[in-house]
Design a protein around this nucleic acid. Structure first.
Lengths: 149, 149
DNA sequence: CACTAATAATTTGTGTACAAATTAATCTAC
DNA sequence: GTAGATTAATTTGTACACAAATTATTAGTG
């Protein structure tokens, strides 16, 4: 077997964890797409709604820390959620720099619809719940590893 | 403990594998960014180069199957790789519809630089190689699960 | 109190992602 | 052999993602 072949090539696509990660991320998000479409949400918007259902009210900065996203990404995303009628964006009265993002009644109602999504996804994946939990923990450790110096 | 609290809430951010996946993917790609910058490459462009180093020549369609990306995403990406001087794009002589994407000498030279990247990343992550391998396998199973009906 | 530094959002610019429409070439039937 | 279906890329339009610059407000210091 000549050198640089699939089994030994350190640059082989199939050896790259970063490749498996990006494919897996896009593939899983792709499963959400048809479920989120009736709600009018993209996946990042769905994650923002999860954060708000859990921690409302939030500032752009706080939401960015929760979702690990830049304010520059969230700013237009939140305007779209507002245009959909799911959130309100009001300047804080105590600090005019920060935005208080809150849910509208419509946005709060949406939570009941969203609760159907996680079980639909796990059913669709058809993986052992224990394996899925192990994967979640492994991903959490990986995320922690990217943060350590 | 009131219902809907972190430990039991099925919509809690920290329970969503899709959330861990997208964060992990972006976080890991973020580690590549400073290493790829000297080469003038983004991470998707790096993956395309990996595919070409392994399988050149490739058509847009074939590259899309390898990277699981839409031709609409690859078309402009490949033009950027061409502008960088790393690839050539020529219509196939036997079928004028398909594009033959090949590496330039400069693109081939780049491989030597790229070989330094994977070990630098794994060193930076500082994870047990066995754990990393397990994660890779778990991701591969997950990707397969998204494809099954 | 005034002046500067720091902070929170937004804006701008580049590069993915992906759906949908378009264009050009090839294939298939008849 | 040609009309119609198929296929390969590209284009168009919307929405992230992130770096860098900008704006507006607050905090800190002399």
């Amino acid at each position: 077997m000549k050198p640089g072949t699939e089994a030994t090539d350190p640059l082989a696509l199939d050896h790259q964890v970063c490749f498996a990660l990006s494919i897996a991320s896009r593939a899983v998000i792709g499963l959400y797409r048809p479920l989120l479409k009736p709600l009018g949400l993209t996946h990042p918007q769905y994650l923002a709604m999860l954060a708000l259902w859990q921690h409302e009210p939030l500032s752009v900065k706080e939401l960015g820390e929760l979702l690990q996203l830049d304010p520059a990404t969230l700013s237009p995303l939140l305007k779209r959620l507002q245009a959909l009628g799911y959130v309100e964006r009001n300047r804080s009265s105590t600090d005019e720099r920060t935005l208080a993002i809150t849910l509208t009644p419509e946005g709060r109602r949406l939570r009941a619809e969203a609760e159907k999504i996680p079980p639909a996804i796990t059913a669709r994946l058809g993986l052992d719940p224990g394996d899925l939990h192990d994967l979640h923990q492994a991903l959490t450790r990986l995320i922690a590893a990217t943060r350590d110096t």
